[in-house]
Design a protein around this nucleic acid. Structure first.
Length: 304
DNA sequence: GAGACGTGGAG
DNA sequence: TCTCCAAGTCT
């Protein structure tokens, strides 16, 4: 049967990832899920290991300033995730005696944890039955059951219903199913060039049966060069590298400051903004508002 | 609900 | 080089 084909494939081909190891902890799983949001496994691996070595429990992380979490986040991207993970650790200490809660509802109450992550932690860390729906599972189910090349840009109620309908009844089977379908999407049923000849359910795939039709929408581009996002990243790179508050002149007259090779690129981006000081002000304002930075007499720094 | 939010590898 | 996209969440 379909379910068995996929879970057998998983048994044979699953990657050995540290957050799947038998000695994993709920905290380790939670950290991995946050890091993996919109971020490839290969980039998460080293950061995850460092993070767990340094902060093996929520209490350990909560005991340090949020800025340390942001710094340790390094170049994983979306640094607000680091901030939220720190806040989640604090809430786990305050409300759950330092123990990661195990129900979807409790998990969703933590900052940075939405529908996907709550379900994933409940399933993979606690062995509970939960409908896990990530981009991999959406894509596999779109092809396998709906016969479309890609799921729509945003998650629909129909997709959720489908995911619930195909979730195996038994708790243990449901956990295996979630992990297996996700892995199938990550390794075989990929977005760009799926390896259908290696797929355990290629003979039952509605998309293949339909002749592998093209996607019926235009993927939205993600502009980057010259955007505020890029500049926020550049500012954060400077703050992460700094031991002390960074004077304002560094941002508004970057050409004259900081010559660390590591920062040459971020500073080059900032330098391009010298003609638009108001725009840079807005960007710094945004970082302050998001809590990713704090200001003092001396300048700008990561939050304490 | 559309848009904002980082980063770097692959095709 | 340039576009796509990777285990989403929040406003």
């Amino acid at each position: 049967m379909l379910q068995r084909s996929i879970t057998d494939w998983f048994s044979a081909h699953a990657r050995e990832l540290p957050w799947r190891s038998p000695n994993r902890t709920p905290w380790g799983v939670l950290v991995s899920e946050i890091m993996l949001q919109q971020t490839p496994v290969v980039r998460v691996l080293p950061r995850w290991q460092e993070w767990l070595d340094r902060w093996p429990t929520p209490a350990a992380l909560a005991a340090e300033p949020a800025g340390e979490a942001v710094r340790a986040w390094g170049r994983l991207g979306y640094p607000r995730r680091a901030l939220r993970l720190h806040a989640a650790a604090s809430k786990i200490v305050a409300d759950y005696d330092g123990v990661v809660p195990g129900t979807v509802e409790e998990l969703k109450s933590l900052p940075g944890i939405g529908d996907y992550t709550a379900a994933a932690v409940a399933a993979f860390a606690f062995g509970r039955k939960a409908t896990v729906v990530d981009t991999n599972i959406r894509r596999v189910e779109a092809r396998l059951f709906s016969g479309t090349a890609l799921p729509a840009p945003s998650l629909s109620a129909a997709e959720m219903a489908l995911a619930e309908a195909v979730l195996p009844e038994a708790v243990s089977d449901s956990v295996d199913w979630n992990a297996a379908v996700m892995e199938l999407g990550a390794l075989i049923c990929t977005a760009r060039s799926p390896q259908c000849q290696e797929c355990p359910v290629r003979t039952e795939c509605a998309w293949i049966a339909a002749g592998e039709p093209e996607p019926n929408y235009q993927p939205k581009g993600q502009p980057w060069a010259g955007t505020d996002r890029q500049l926020r990243g550049a500012v954060m790179a400077v703050l992460r590298a700094a031991e002390a508050p960074t004077p304002w002149e560094v941002f508004f007259r970057p050409a004259v400051q900081l010559d660390q090779a590591e920062l040459s690129l971020p500073l080059k981006h900032l330098h391009a903004l010298e003609s638009e000081p108001s725009r840079l002000e807005n960007i710094l304002e945004g970082l302050l508002k998001d809590g990713l930075a704090e200001r003092s007499e001396a300048g700008l720094a990561l939050p304490r």
